[in-house]
Amino acid sequence: MTCVSVIIPTHNRADVLGRAVASVLAQSLPDLELIVVDDGSTDRTAEVMAGFDDPRLTGMRQENKGVSSARNLGIAASRGRYIALLDSDDYWLPEKLERQVRFMDESGFEICQTDEIWIRDGVRVNPRFRHAKPAGWFLEKSLELCLISPSCVMFSRRLWDELGPFDERLPACEDYSLWLRVGARHPVGLVPEALTVKTGGHADQLSRRIIGLDLYRVYAVVDLLRTMDLTAEQRAMAVASLRERVRLYAQGCIKYGKDEEALRVRELAAPFMG
């Protein structure tokens, strides 16, 4: 079995995809496979992929179905003991996978992440204190803010089989939904080294394209309450988070004259708020 399967979903990012792929193939850990899933690109993505000649690299293509579908497809085709995700606009430092595999093997964690460097519009910026990556059990903090970065994370196939896949119904916050399920079942390890470079500021980022991200966060918490067998403490935390998220979302809807949408979301959440 391959040690690590790396999954890169991509859609119309030919200008940065090569950098991401090269950063994986340059890892100090040689025992890996890289699966790039082209989610219906219409740019030069195929040409960029053709420029690489490495037996560890596999390209897949599907019609445009979104990042969740692309990640799920790639993971389903993979065979690694561990799975690592990389967004096509981010990239890794050379020892990223080696450090994580060593950490996972020695610690027994089923999931861990690294620290990261943030680049916005080509300039390095410092993350706010609230974005500092915690370690261990932190479901309560995760309910407030997504604290796991896809490009930083590595998890075992056992964890994926237990809690995957990504929810393909969500056009955004699909990773947040999975990390909430993970947080209810597993502590998250941290390799406290900035081994991932996360770029931002470009117009095609989901966080900039998708309006109403709060709605998908509501869906994620509802799904947690609906599908997971939570402890009493975990359920109380999730209900409190849902109540506040619904309040804020409905408040915004009413402000802009969308009373029916406010009512719809309140009714959606009502069975879980007790």
Rank of each mutant, 00 (worst) to 15 (best):
E144G: 08
E174D: 07
K141L: 15
D167Q: 12
M154S: 08
G136V: 06
L159T: 05
W137F: 14
L170V: 01
L139V: 09
L170S: 01
S151T: 01
R158V: 14
C152F: 06
W160P: 12
M154R: 13
L139C: 12
L163M: 09
W160S: 02
A135Q: 15
G136L: 05
L147Q: 10
F138C: 06
R169Q: 00
S149I: 13
R158L: 10
K141R: 15
A135K: 09
E140T: 07
P134G: 02
G164E: 11
P150G: 14
A135H: 11
S156Q: 01
G164Y: 08
D175C: 04
R169W: 06
R157V: 09
F155I: 04
E174H: 04
D167F: 02
L147H: 00
S151C: 02
P165Q: 00
S156E: 07
W160E: 12
F166K: 02
F166D: 11
L143W: 07
V153D: 01
L159Q: 11
L170Y: 02
A135E: 15
L139Y: 07
M154I: 15
F155S: 05
L159H: 07
G164W: 00
P150M: 00
P134D: 08
W137V: 15
P171Y: 03
C173S: 10
P134N: 06
E174C: 09
E174W: 04
L139K: 08
E144V: 03
L163G: 06
L163T: 07
L143M: 04
E162F: 12
G136W: 08
V153N: 08
D161M: 10
P165D: 09
L163D: 00
P171Q: 03
P171K: 06
L170C: 00
D167S: 12
R169I: 03
K141M: 08
W160K: 07
D161V: 12
L159A: 05
G136P: 03
R158A: 13
E162H: 09
R169N: 09
E168G: 10
D167P: 02
S151E: 04
W160Y: 02
S142M: 15
L139G: 01
L139F: 13
L147I: 06
P150N: 13
C146Q: 09
A172Y: 05
M154W: 10
L170A: 02
P134Q: 11
V153C: 05
A135I: 03
S151G: 09
E144Y: 15
R157L: 15
E162W: 02
S156T: 15
F166Y: 14
C152H: 05
C173P: 06
G164A: 07
D161E: 13
F155L: 15
D175W: 00
W137I: 13
R157F: 08
L145R: 14
E144D: 14
S142G: 12
G164P: 09
C173G: 06
D161R: 15
C152Y: 08
W137Q: 11
R157N: 09
A135L: 06
C152R: 01
F166R: 09
K141S: 11
G136N: 03
F166T: 02
V153K: 04
D167H: 10
L147R: 11
F166S: 11
S151N: 13
D175H: 02
I148S: 10
